[in-house]
Design a binder for these strands. Structure first.
Length: 405
RNA sequence: UCCGUGGUAGCUCAGCGGUAGAGCAGUUCGCUGUUAACGAAUUGGUCGUAGGUUCGAUCCCUACCCACGGAG
């Protein structure tokens, strides 16, 4: 089976929202779907059985930069791709390394997130000057020079190189090499950056066509272009128009956003992108953000948040986020999750609290299973609500309960 | 019984004439295409007890109590 996308239902309530199926050589993805992140070919602290049986994940996303450095894409290739290496038989994605352009470049050392509040953006000058940290990613028009996070060795990524590595990694769906910009970058810089990203998109596409099927899997891979443009309407629309005109199999919506109106930026883009191709919102995974994005036509998501905050003791619940490390849970005999069908129903909050306070590895595992299940289930439920023409009701009741203060 | 060393935050310890600090633990917050089992903030102490010297003692002196080591 090769790659294709079919829309099985358009929402009667929101003009951009839809339900669909992404067909890949390794199975179908029912959309909207949350894609679990496994950066280094592992969903941190979980086995693939946890990921499929307890989380119910449909697909896994790994990272080009990290696997290229360790263990090396040649070694991943020897396994027949990263999915085989990690024992995952379902659909897979790889990110291109474009996010590391930001996270190891502008972001490093001064705690800038790709999502900034409008207040932070208005104070951008003061924040940008505090760059006493050496950048590990330096951009030029042809590509990016990275310094390894492991040993400082120098590595060169170009669109072509990213494609070659991703062909070795063998994901069903992979992304063009792009430049993820800082939300604090001024519009002049964002303009330069999307010009680069568009040129790199074309080069990515050309190289992918030249390479043919994945050497790792022998399967045809689907390439998604990545829309940039930050929080600027004109740039987002321009990027969607330019990339939408290229022959990609689908689209990633990447880059930085303003916290308060991410959904607006998604809407600008999705009104322009070809309707019949899937849209992946890169690196977004907070409940509210996802629901608004689904409403505005996003099909898939990936995000490190569920697993990262899990390892640090934060859990999603339908009544909002909790920190299981808090004193009140030491004696809380209620189950981690209320739903009896969830794996984490069998354990008490007091037990998980104990595991965290004792620095036990199982703490990360149970918390990660729980958070991934929560987020995956949320998107699955949203999909069902779309099918049932009850999306707005579903969204509003979830938000009312989750964000009540 | 004698000699020695030491008793400072819950723990391990630093400080040494001007009424105290660190790390960890504790408490709380933050993490959105993973440089993250990470980062940040913050609560804890009449410095073993009782005297003495001194303008002033956690610090110097004496006695006592406790712990550890050595001798017997």
């Amino acid at each position: 089976m090769s790659f294709s996308f079919e829309i099985t239902k358009k929402s009667s309530e929101a003009p951009l929202a839809r339900v669909g199926i992404i067909h890949t050589p390794h199975g179908d993805i029912h959309t909207p779907a949350f894609i679990t992140v496994g950066t280094k070919a592992t969903v941190k602290s979980l086995t693939v059985e946890d990921v499929s049986n307890y989380v119910g994940a449909q697909a896994v996303l790994a990272n080009t930069y990290h696997l290229y450095l360790k263990p090396g894409d040649d070694l991943v290739l020897k396994h027949g791709g990263f999915a085989k290496m990690m024992g995952w038989s379902g659909p897979t994605f790889t990110d291109s390394g474009g996010f590391q352009v930001f996270s190891l470049g502008q972001a490093i050392g001064h705690g800038v997130s790709k999502i900034a509040t409008s207040e932070e953006i208005s104070k951008r000058e003061t924040k940008e000057e505090t760059s006493n940290h050496e950048k590990l990613a330096v951009i030029d028009d042809d590509g990016v020079t990275f310094k390894s996070i492991h040993d400082g060795s120098v590595h060169r990524f170009t669109p072509e190189r990213s494609m070659q590595i991703q062909h070795n990694l063998g994901a069903d769906i992979f992304f063009a090499f792009d430049e993820c910009t800082s939300p604090l970058a001024p519009i002049e810089y964002q303009k330069e950056a999307i010009a680069r990203t568009h040129a790199w998109a074309k080069r990515s596409l050309d190289e992918h066509k030249k390479l043919g099927v994945s050497v790792a899997t022998g399967k045809q891979q689907a390439l998604f272009g990545v829309v940039q443009g930050g929080a600027y309407e004109g740039l987002r629309k321009e990027s969607a128009t330019v990339l939408g005109g290229m022959d990609f199999d689908g689209y990633g919506i990447g880059g930085s956003f303003t916290k308060e109106d991410m959904a607006t930026a998604v809407k600008w883009v999705n009104e322009i992108l070809p309707e019949n191709k899937p849209r992946h919102l890169l690196g977004i995974g907070e409940p509210m953000d996802m629901l608004l994005a689904i409403e505005n036509g996003v099909d898939t998501f990936d995000c490190v948040s569920p697993t990262r905050i899990a390892r640090n003791g934060a859990l999603y619940t339908y009544d909002g986020r909790i920190n299981i490390n808090n004193n009140q849970y030491k004696n809380d005999m209620s189950p981690i999750s209320d739903d009896e069908s969830w794996y984490t129903h069998k354990y008490t909050k007091a037990y998980l609290s104990h595991l965290f306070h004792s620095d036990e590895m199982l703490a990360a595992t149970l918390a990660s299973i729980h958070n991934l299940k929560f987020i995956t289930q949320l998107v699955d439920d949203a999909r069902q609500a779309l099918v049932d023409d009850k999306f707005m009701e579903f969204k509003n009741s979830f938000i009312k309960r989750y964000y009540k203060k």
